[in-house]
């Protein structure tokens, strides 16, 4: 949609993309998270683990950037990276089943991590893997912090484009044109790779990504792809390399400390009104809002 029309002749372009992904408690059950008795922990027991939805969209965007969407031919590499406990491996398998090529799992527990530590570890992985692009979610929907991508870009000294809703590959794969969801409208940047891009919701709309390999008439569905049975089978054989903060040489420790958690004061359901007249009367006389 955003970049329709422009096509430049490009040679074969193979980008290597690192996609940091976090697993979160099923966001659609966020109202079922509980607080431990001492208020020191959020317990998501009994809730299903999911890939952070924005990271799922980043995986989808990375796949769209590294394939011919029409033929399914792969033309680049997508590597996943996650910091978390060992069983994050299951969540990684799900993303590998979508089509990502391989994954790295950095074992760590929640108490060892905050954005600074995550970013330090990701920066070290970037130094090892040397991707052309780090593509990630704009925010993890558990902590709702929206900071890691920006901090990683700075740690690497790379340019960034946050809150991306459209990406076009330029200059034969050397640069990206990125449409960003900014205040009041869309802000478009051109970033020279290597760069960090964080994605917003609209990155999975049908024409959001133009890589000049997928024919211009190809439209994707309007969400992240589901893993096919073939994809699920293939994912079983894809490598998940395991490492640790110590092995990566991460020396940072968290500076963000959550002393306690509370449930917000809830709202109660009010009244059902019979019709528009009753609504207007109550808004005027009772709520004094009109």
């Amino acid at each position: 949609m955003l970049f329709a029309g422009r096509r430049s002749a490009t040679k074969e372009m193979r980008v290597k993309i690192l996609v940091p992904v976090k697993r979160v408690a099923d966001p659609d059950n966020a109202n079922k998270v509980k607080i431990s008795g001492d208020g020191k922990q959020v317990t998501s027991q009994g809730l299903e683990w999911k890939l952070n939805p924005f990271d799922e969209y980043a995986v989808e965007a990375a796949l769209r950037l590294t394939e011919n969407g029409k033929t399914g031919e792969r033309i680049g590499e997508v590597i996943l990276a996650s910091l978390g406990p060992k069983d994050v491996g299951q969540t990684l398998r799900g993303a590998l089943a979508m089509g990502a090529d391989r994954a790295v799992l950095v074992e760590a527990n929640d108490e060892q991590l905050d954005a600074g530590v995550v970013v330090d570890a990701l920066a070290k992985l970037v130094a090892q893997e040397k991707p052309d692009l780090v593509l990630m979610g704009k925010q993890a929907v558990d902590g709702d912090s929206n900071q890691s991508g920006q901090m990683l870009a700075e740690a690497l000294g790379w340019p960034m484009a946050t809150f991306a809703m459209g990406i076009e590959v330029l200059d034969g794969g050397k640069a990206l044109k990125v449409g960003r969801e900014a205040d009041g409208g869309i802000l478009t940047l051109k970033v020279t790779l290597p760069a960090v891009v964080t994605v917003d919701l609209r990155i999975v709309t049908p024409k959001s990504i133009v890589n000049h390999k997928t024919p211009a008439d190809h439209a994707y569905s309007d969400t992240a792809r589901y893993a096919s049975l073939k994809g699920i089978m293939a994912a079983k054989k894809k490598p998940i390399a395991e490492t640790s903060l110590a092995k990566l040489g991460v020396t940072k420790t968290p500076v963000l400390t959550y002393a306690k958690f509370e449930l917000p004061t809830g709202r109660k359901a009010g009244v059902k009104v019979a019709d528009v007249n009753e609504l207007v009367t109550r808004l005027r006389t009772e709520a004094k809002a009109l």
Partner: peptide, 15 residues
């Protein structure tokens, strides 16, 4: 700060 889509309020210090 609100977290988990506003379903939890966290109390935070920055070191």
């Amino acid at each position: 700060r609100p977290m988990f889509a506003g379903n939890v309020v966290g109390t935070l210090t920055v070191g």
